[in-house]
Design a protein around this nucleic acid. Sequence first.
DNA 1: GTTGACGTTGACGTCAACGTAAAGCAATAC
DNA 2: GTATTGCTTTACGTTGACGTCAACGTCAAC
Lengths: 141, 141
Amino acid sequence: MPTPAAVPTRAVDADQRERTWSIAEVAAEFGVTHRTVRHYEELGLITPERRGTTRIYHRRDRTRLGLILRGKRLGFPLEEIRTIIDLYDAPRGRRSQLEYVLGQIDERRADLEQRRRDLDAALAELTEFERRCRADLDLLG
Amino acid sequence: MPTPAAVPTRAVDADQRERTWSIAEVAAEFGVTHRTVRHYEELGLITPERRGTTRIYHRRDRTRLGLILRGKRLGFPLEEIRTIIDLYDAPRGRRSQLEYVLGQIDERRADLEQRRRDLDAALAELTEFERRCRADLDLLG
DNA sequence: GTTGACGTTGACGTCAACGTAAAGCAATAC
DNA sequence: GTATTGCTTTACGTTGACGTCAACGTCAAC
């Protein structure tokens, strides 16, 4: 348990908890444009705080942005990504809700595992193709 | 080595080599519309034979269609898919060409391996999330 | 000989995921 | 002060990946 003497740790915690970012900062950090970030907000994928009219991004928003971009790298459409990350934040108080969430998890898992099969097949073919190319290269001396 | 006595095998080979398909057949088989198949042709991803004006699909076209759709499931854009499957058919006679192809293979592999990392991370998070949900469910009796 | 079933070529429509001005506010920099 | 920098909204443009007619050819079946 942290005591008042554990000052360094608590200071770092406080920093990480309370630090916020501007739209330019998060955009640069994740290698996207501010337009992209705002687009995700329009679709309800992130909901940054507003100070007046200016957007303020917290750690939670950066976490979500990371999930969004990973989902994109995996080829998911943004609408589907939204349902996924909403799932992580869904209320899970009642049994019916938990069971619904668990069902959704199963669907997601099946999807991801199909993708992994495709991915492994593609990698295997690529490896075999490389082997043949190297064999051809050897034949050329 | 096949002898003239190996009739059954040779008959099957001949069937498989010479059987062709209509656009409706390939579309149905791969679960896409004829419009989609023609779209891929417009982009140069497949080039079926023409008998008069009618398209005739060979095994080679079906193989390509399979690669295209797997690429799509993995989230690749069609233009990129085209460069990939063209790579498999590229001439590899000269050393310089082989070295180019091997370089492309490396790029592809790096891309696919990044995707696999993303995929594994997503699956791990999903599993952890499921664990927490089941724990919550246990608490409800 | 006409009716489907299946094929063809345009050509325009649509949806997602942004890009790209245009025009304006708000704070710091000179 | 004003000029630049950074943020904002509004709104139209673009690209990819098809969908969706329209208008027509062709061939077997009835």
